[in-house]
Structure formats: structure tokens, C-alpha cells
């Protein structure tokens, strides 16, 4: 799907289809004196994913959560969080089950969760991040295995070591608490298994795709793997 937003310089608001990713003059498309402004492909991808998750939530059966005690509605998860697979980090998640619908084969859950973690970029810098997701989780009644899909907004901050700023008049100043902050929606796909253990109630492995907006001049994805336990 390549939808472009087309701003007619004389008469605004015309929608056109275009395959190019960069602003181009429509001379190439046999229309002169117009410019096509298009969504970056990552934004299109994100939009499709948001719609997918929303539809998943919207069409899932409305659940009765009365069977859960308050203690069962809330739980924590802790995990190793490997940015770009291998750069280490830790993460803690707080989860709240707000919909549950059990049936013979599986239990469907809708979960709201909050994530707080950090990544370590060896001999470079740290990053802390905080994101909030709505997750759908389906747990098989037979063996307790589950899969998860989640999406939500967040904030990511790189924390630099010693940082210096050169001012307009050429002086050097040390910056305290230096870093850079990005809007960072995160998409998660994962699977796991419930355990018969009083402390570690489930194990899981998730793939987390986070997008940092306004990173340098555009958007970059961060691909991470999360391995953890429900406690």
C-alpha cells in the first residue's frame, strides 16, 4: 500500500497514490507544479499494526473478570532485555488483567501493562525506557502455553556519559544529566508457558520492536529480545 498525501499548491487536499517514498515533484507523474508529501514506510507499517491490534481487541469476546480475585488481576514480570539481541538490559513489567474469557480450549486475556527498563551499550551509554501497552494473550487450557501480542506508546531516553556542549560564542560547557529523549511506541510478539511454581508463575520470550521517533533526522527501529518470568 503506497498512499501519498498530496498538497495541491493552488487547491489543497487531493489524495493520490504514489510508489515513491520521498517528496517528489509531480512532473515525474505527468502533473506539474505539485509536490507529494508521503508517509515514511515505517509509519505506514506502524499504522497497519495499530489497526491490527485494535481489531484484535475489538473483535475479541467481552470477558467476565469476576472470577478473578484482585490479587490475580495484578502481576509482575521481570526480564532480561537484550537490545539488538545481545546488548544487555533489565526490565520490569506491571500487568493488569482487565478482561478474561475462558473457554474449553483456551483463555483469552486483555491486559494493560506498564514497562520500565534499561539497556546498557557497553563502553558507550545507557538507555532507560518506559512504555505502556494493551496486550492480548491467549492461554491454551491443555498445557498452559500462551502467545502474546501487544502495542502501545512509550518514552525512551539515551543517557550519555560525559557530555560537552559548544555554545554559539565558542565556549565549552559541561552538560549535567545529558541525554536525548524519543517518543517510542513498542510492538511486542511473544510466547510462553505457565509454570506450576509458587514464585515463578510463568516464563516467556518476547520480541520487542520499538520505534524511536525523531532520532537524528527520522525514525529508527530497535529490535530486542526479552526473556523473563511472571512473578
Amino acid at each position: 500500500m503506497n498512499v501519498g498525501f498530496f498538497m495541491d499548491q493552488n487547491n489543497s487536499n487531493t489524495i493520490v497514490m504514489n510508489k515513491n517514498l520521498r517528496p517528489v515533484t509531480l512532473a515525474k507523474n505527468n502533473i506539474k507544479n505539485h509536490t507529494v508529501y508521503q508517509f515514511p514506510i515505517t509509519l505506514k507499517f506502524l499504522l497497519i499494526l495499530i489497526l491490527s491490534v485494535c481489531s484484535q481487541i475489538a473483535f475479541s469476546q467481552v470477558a467476565d473478570t469476576n472470577s478473578l480475585t484482585n490479587r490475580q488481576k495484578y502481576y509482575f514480570e521481570v526480564s532480561y532485555y537484550g537490545y539488538n539481541l545481545i546488548k544487555p538490559g533489565l526490565k520490569a513489567n506491571f500487568n493488569f488483567i482487565f478482561k478474561q474469557k475462558p473457554n474449553e480450549k483456551k483463555t483469552n486475556l486483555l491486559i494493560a501493562n506498564a514497562h520500565l527498563g534499561f539497556s546498557w551499550y557497553p563502553h558507550s551509554h545507557f538507555a532507560i525506557f518506559n512504555y505502556y501497552q494493551i496486550a492480548y494473550r491467549g492461554i491454551k487450557s491443555k498445557n498452559g502455553k500462551f502467545f502474546t501480542i501487544a502495542l502501545g506508546p512509550g518514552v525512551y531516553r539515551s543517557i550519555y556519559p560525559k557530555t560537552y556542549k559548544v555554545t554559539d560564542d565558542g565556549n565549552v560547557e559541561k552538560i549535567y544529566f545529558p541525554g536525548s529523549t524519543y517518543f517510542s511506541p513498542a510492538l511486542t510478539f511473544g510466547s510462553g508457558k505457565e509454570l506450576n511454581n509458587k514464585i515463578l508463575k510463568a516464563r516467556f520470550i518476547d520480541v520487542v520492536l520499538m520505534f524511536l521517533f525523531d532520532y537524528n533526522t527520522n525514525i529508527v527501529p530497535l529490535l530486542s529480545i526479552e526473556i523473563g518470568f511472571k512473578i
Binding site: 563502553h123 558507550s124 551509554h125 539515551s158 550519555y160 556519559p161 560525559k162 557530555t163 560537552y164 556542549k165 559548544v166 552538560i175 545529558p178 536525548s180 537524528n216
Partner: peptide, 14 residues
Amino acid sequence: VIYIRHAGADMPAY
């Protein structure tokens, strides 16, 4: 490793 902030860029120097 130090970072240099200039004109919107945060550039590390190892």
C-alpha cells in the same frame, strides 16, 4: 568516551 553536543547532534568520540 565523551559526547559532543553541537547544532542538534550528540556525537560520541571514543
